[in-house]
């Protein structure tokens, strides 16, 4: 559930809180107490619903875990992790997630940014367009996955009809969801389509913040629209770009419902992504220990990738604790 939230919202992971002025220790203690009172209900709920199951999940990952509490679980240390590292199907699912990321992250960034630039200037019906672009974002994954499954149907889908009968770019119907690469492509197209509105809204917000006088100064210097965009707007929203990219990458690794409902990970497991594979290990094969280990492997990869993004593109500003 934390993941769902991560993929739907723009938060600013900007952390460094303004350091309050030093005060005397009694006042400080009283302040601490007040803070705890405000903090406690939410943090307690978080610990109960997120942190505790997470810790427990880690514990499970160290066991050959018996599903039923009355049967004994066997402690096997890091064996599940070793098995995961050697599991070809798991790495195939990671590779598929990689393909999904390569399509959806640049896709959402570029199209989202383009739409934001388009709507940044004053024009009629701006509000309407903003809503239209955002509608896929607010629609549930279940609904859009089913709609796209319908569109990408092999023998009677609208997409094939367009490609074969209208545009004549394909000779025969493409078995979209029945083969690996087309299947990943269809799922990725859905990912881009559903996500661009979100990226757009955030970019739009950031672009609004780019000071007009900078742009005007550049215009006076004879810079064209493209130059102004590349040299003024883009650097100005660099942090937002980074922030959006990181969240898109995390969201991309979490792709799940669309694959589950559109291809089911098939054919022959070739469109499996980490979460569908993990889900199958747990609920089809009752291998909860292994599923938990896989999920932590995935989490490690996500954290490494996010961290290196900050290191590579974040400059020297401290962005996340």
């Amino acid at each position: 559930m934390a993941a769902t939230a991560t993929t739907t919202g723009p938060a600013s992971p900007e952390v460094a809180a303004p350091a309050p002025a030093p005060r005397d220790s009694r006042k400080r203690r009283r302040e601490s107490l007040t803070a705890y009172v405000f903090l406690l209900p939410g943090f307690a709920l978080f610990c109960l619903i997120v942190a505790y199951p997470l810790a427990r999940s880690f514990q499970i990952s160290l066991y050959d875990w018996a599903v039923v509490p009355t049967q004994a679980s066997r402690f096997i240390g890091l064996e599940n992790y070793a098995r995961g590292l050697a599991d070809e199907q798991f790495w195939l699912s990671m590779a598929n997630a990689g393909v999904y990321l390569l399509v959806t992250v640049p896709g959402q960034l570029v199209i989202g940014l383009a739409l934001a630039v388009l709507l940044d200037a004053k024009m009629p019906a701006r509000g309407l367009f903003r809503v239209l672009f955002y509608v896929p974002v607010i629609t549930s994954w279940v609904v859009v996955a089913l709609v796209f499954k319908y569109l990408f149907n092999t023998d009677a889908g609208v997409v094939n009809w367009l490609l074969v009968d209208v545009l004549h770019v394909a000779d025969a119907n493409i078995a979209w969801l029945q083969s690996r690469w087309p299947g990943l492509m269809a799922v990725s197209i859905l990912g881009v389509w559903k996500g661009v509105g979100w990226a757009m809204v955030i970019f739009l917000a950031a672009l609004t913040g780019v000071r007009d006088d900078l742009k005007e100064a550049a215009a006076l210097d004879g810079a064209g629209a493209w130059d102004r965009f590349v040299h003024v707007s883009l650097p100005a929203i660099r942090k937002t770009l980074l922030f959006v990219t990181v969240l898109l990458v995390i969201g991309g690794f979490n792709v799940f419902i669309s694959v589950l409902l559109m291809t089911g990970g098939g054919p022959a497991g070739s469109t499996e992504v980490p979460l569908t594979y993990m889900y199958r290990q747990a609920f089809d094969f009752l291998d909860f220990g292994y599923a938990a280990a896989l999920s932590f492997l995935l989490a490690i990869v996500i954290m490494l990738v996010s961290y290196s993004q900050f290191r590579l593109f974040g400059g020297d500003e401290k962005e996340v604790d």
């Binding site: 934390a2 993941a3 993990m278 989490a299 996500i302």
Partner: peptide, 13 residues
């Protein structure tokens, strides 16, 4: 808590 896919805690949850 935000970084880790929520689905992994589904069984303990």
């Amino acid at each position: 808590g935000l970084m880790i896919p929520g689905i992994i805690t589904i069984v303990p949850a």
